[in-house]
Design a protein around this nucleic acid. Structure first.
Lengths: 191, 191
DNA sequence: TACGGTGATGAGACCAAGTCCCATCACTTT
DNA sequence: AAAGTGATGGGACTTGGTCTCATCACCGTA
C-alpha cells in the first residue's frame, strides 16, 4: 500500500478531471493535479505514462475483453456476430460511476487536440486488436479490417448513446451495432 | 524569400526524415534537425506546429480535395460513389518524389507511438471531413459515417499498395475501394 | 543610389512535460 | 528488533514548445 491515504490513482483521475473542466487541459500543470490529489509530480508519472493518459485508463482492459470475446465466439459465428459479441463483452466496465463523469470526460477530450489525438489512437488500438482476433479465426484480412472498423464505429456511437440514455450497455451496443449494419445495407442498396 | 538558401521547409523535412531513420525519432532533437537543415529551432517551429508535424505536411490539402470531390459529385451518385471520387481526387498529391521516401516515412511512423498517434488523428480528420461532406449531400448520419470510414480504410490500404506497386494512384484507389466493397458484401452474406 | 517596408530568420529567456536517481517512509516478514 | 518491500518525495536534468526582440535579405520607390 502507499503511505497516507489509499486510492492514489483514483484521486489523481478525479483531480485531473475537475481541474481540466475548471481551467482547461492546457492551463493545468501536472504538478497542480498531483498537488490537489495530495501527491507529487513524480507519483503522477508513476501511475500514468503521460498527462493525457490520466483520462484513458483501462482501455487495454477493454481491448482484452474484445479480443477474448472474438476468440471465444462459437465457430459458426460470422465476423460481424463475433464483433457484436466483442462489444457486448465490455458491458462490465460500463458502471454507474463511469457514466457519472462520462460527459465531463468527453467534453474535456473534445476541447483539446492532444486528447483527441490520444482518443484516436485508442480507437485504432481497438480496431487492430479486433482485426487480429478475427484473422486468427480465419477471416480474410480485408473483411476482418472492415468488420473491426464497423465495430469501433458502433462502439463509439453506442458509448455516447449510453451516456445519454443510460440502461444496460449490452442492450445499447446491440441496438447500435444493428443500426450500423442497417446503414451498411442502405449503402449497398443505394446504387 | 528567406535569407540564404531557399526551400527551408523541404530541407527540414528531409533532415528530419533522415535523422529519424538514422537515430530514431525520440533520439533526435528538434535543434538537431534544424541544424542539419542549416536553420534554428525557432525557424523549425515557424514551419511546423510541433515535432511530429514535420512528417504529416499537406494532410489538410488532402482533406480539402476529398470534401471537394464529394461536394462536386453528380447528384445521382450514391455515398459510396462519392467517397470513391474523393479518393481518386487526391491523385495529384501522389508524386514520384513522395513515393520515393514513402516507405522510409512509414517505417519511422510505425516505430514511434507519438507518430502513430498523430497518424491516427489525421485519419480521423479525413473521416470527419468526408462524413460532413456526405451529410451536406443529405446522406443520413450513420450511413455517412460508415461510408467515410470505409473510404479511410481504402485510402490507407491503397496508399500502401501504391508504395509497393507504383503506377497511377487513381487506379490503385479504385481497385482497393472495390476490394473493400467486396469485403463488405462478403460480410453481409456471411450469416 | 539611397531609403523605408516586408517577411523570414536568429537568439535567447522562459515554462511545462517527462526522465532519472536517490533518499525516505509505511508496512510486512522473519 | 532487524531486514525487506513498495510506494512516495524531491530535485536535477533534457527537451518540446512559446514568446519577444533584434537582425538580415530582398523589393519597390524616390
Amino acid at each position: 500500500m502507499g503511505r497516507w491515504e489509499p486510492d492514489a490513482r483514483e484521486r489523481l483521475v478525479r483531480a485531473a478531471l475537475d481541474l481540466f473542466s475548471e481551467q482547461g487541459y492546457e492551463n493545468t500543470a501536472v504538478a497542480q493535479i498531483a498537488e490537489r490529489a495530495g501527491l507529487t509530480k513524480s507519483t503522477f508519472f508513476r501511475h500514468f505514462r503521460d498527462k493525457r493518459e490520466v483520462l484513458f485508463g483501462g482501455q487495454d482492459v477493454l481491448a482484452g475483453l474484445m479480443t477474448g470475446a472474438i476468440s471465444g465466439a462459437p465457430a459458426e459465428a460470422g465476423p460481424l456476430e463475433a464483433v457484436e459479441a466483442a462489444l457486448v463483452a465490455t458491458v462490465g466496465t460500463f458502471t454507474d460511476e463511469r457514466r457519472a463523469h462520462g460527459p465531463q470526460r468527453l467534453a474535456v477530450i473534445a476541447g483539446n487536440d492532444e486528447l483527441r489525438e490520444r482518443s484516436a489512437l485508442k480507437m485504432v488500438g481497438f480496431a487492430v486488436s479486433m482485426t487480429d482476433a478475427l484473422k486468427r479465426r480465419g477471416v480474410p484480412e480485408l473483411e476482418a479490417a472492415v468488420a473491426a472498423e464497423l465495430g469501433v464505429l458502433a462502439f463509439n456511437h453506442g458509448y455516447e448513446r449510453w451516456l445519454e440514455t443510460g440502461g444496460d450497455f449490452a442492450e445499447v451496443a446491440r441496438r447500435t451495432f444493428s443500426d450500423v449494419r442497417a446503414a451498411v445495407g442502405s449503402l449497398e442498396r443505394a446504387e
